[in-house]
Design a protein around this nucleic acid. Sequence first.
DNA 1: ACTATAATACTTGTATACAAGTATACTCAA
DNA 2: TTGAGTATACTTGTATACAAGTATTATAGT
Lengths: 243, 243
Amino acid sequence: MSESKDYLYPQKWLSKASTGDRVAYELRMRIISGLIESGTILSENKLAADFEVSRSPIREALRILASENIIRLEKMGAVVIGLSEKEIEEIYDVRLLIETFVFERLIKMDTTNLALELSKTLEMMKVAIKYNDADEFSYQDVMFHEAIIRSIKHSYITMIWNNLKPVMEGLILLSMRMRFKEKYEDFNRIVKNHEMYIDAIRAKDRELMIKSLHENFDDVQGKVEDLWRSQQMLSKGVEPQND
Amino acid sequence: MSESKDYLYPQKWLSKASTGDRVAYELRMRIISGLIESGTILSENKLAADFEVSRSPIREALRILASENIIRLEKMGAVVIGLSEKEIEEIYDVRLLIETFVFERLIKMDTTNLALELSKTLEMMKVAIKYNDADEFSYQDVMFHEAIIRSIKHSYITMIWNNLKPVMEGLILLSMRMRFKEKYEDFNRIVKNHEMYIDAIRAKDRELMIKSLHENFDDVQGKVEDLWRSQQMLSKGVEPQND
DNA sequence: ACTATAATACTTGTATACAAGTATACTCAA
DNA sequence: TTGAGTATACTTGTATACAAGTATTATAGT
């Protein structure tokens, strides 16, 4: 894990991660970005050689990615599933599903502290926009939704989130990096949308929340084609995994 | 993995499983059943010695159980979380959530084949009841719900199911073993309930489906206290993991 | 040219070895 | 008795070795 290649995943987010986790994060980004094409067969030995680590952390990484449904472990090799538009839609189905569930619980709770935390996070997002920091913006965006989901303290909803989060984060990272370069004006809408979400939580307004969720959904979902373009862009200079 | 202890998980279901999976299945049962108490700290070395395997499959098993939220990996050792009533309720929350989602999709599909498959599975359940085979019954019960969930071919809903399934299966196994001994009359109601579910799917009757789901929910959920009693019963003769 | 069989070069699964870090217990000093 | 510091026995993370199985390739026979 010490090669000189460009990494797609922000290295500073990995300060405490084990080698296995690092490999998983990086491999995930390469798969989501399309750098490693769907259908590719990954071998533990080749990956170990590429990342210059032993098979142990590679195996660990492959199990993680398999549990996220972006690869499939077979008898001989791991087959890359990747993310087609269908899968991305499905991810957002699940996000909608769990955030709707969460909101129903939130309605019965005191949401003052949560709303406050979300406001803070949104402020950070604004700063990230100001300083053109796509990665930091993505991080805060993910934290925004994580804060909402964790707030109801439902361990099995949190479990689903934990399984979904890495892929979501990857998607958001790629999407935001592209937009910071090409669609800077998008961020006004994104900020507005998050403000709407906070208002919905503060006011416990179910309709407003659904509206905001769906707009956020359309915001990412509708722009998938752009994302694929951006992936082409980001893929330059790094060679594919397999021959 | 060749010790002479009594196993809680049906060994014949593990014919093709790797050592790591076997350990995971067995450990999961011991945790769910309360045989290994919540709060216990599991060490890889001790587990490896107990199961008479190396640390590699043990590590694999621990990762699996951690992703299912029944243990928590820490710096020194894995802490058993287990299943309190809160967790069991949460599992059923999620089952309700995803099965409701699935049903909405089913309504837009041709459900003839699915209804047929479910009828077949239900027949098998009846045979299992007739021959007093709790494990076979549990297996078919799980397959019943799995068939429904898989039928919509939604990879991320399937992913959630895959994460939930092992724990659900364990709960059902323990619950059914107890009932076959103590509450045989329950099975009439369970069969009726599954028939209702099939009818709902065939007729695409949303209300009937919700009714059946909730009854099934109450059926297991309401009987948690019994389950704990049964766990005591099943736990006899096997000593705990830790000292 | 084509099939059957054997050799080979891969694959994963498991066991083991070693390194680095952490908690515990013990020793020595005040 | 109490406290600081050190030794020790544990822990996990990673690398490596080996075994068993599978696909592919090469070879021999027709």
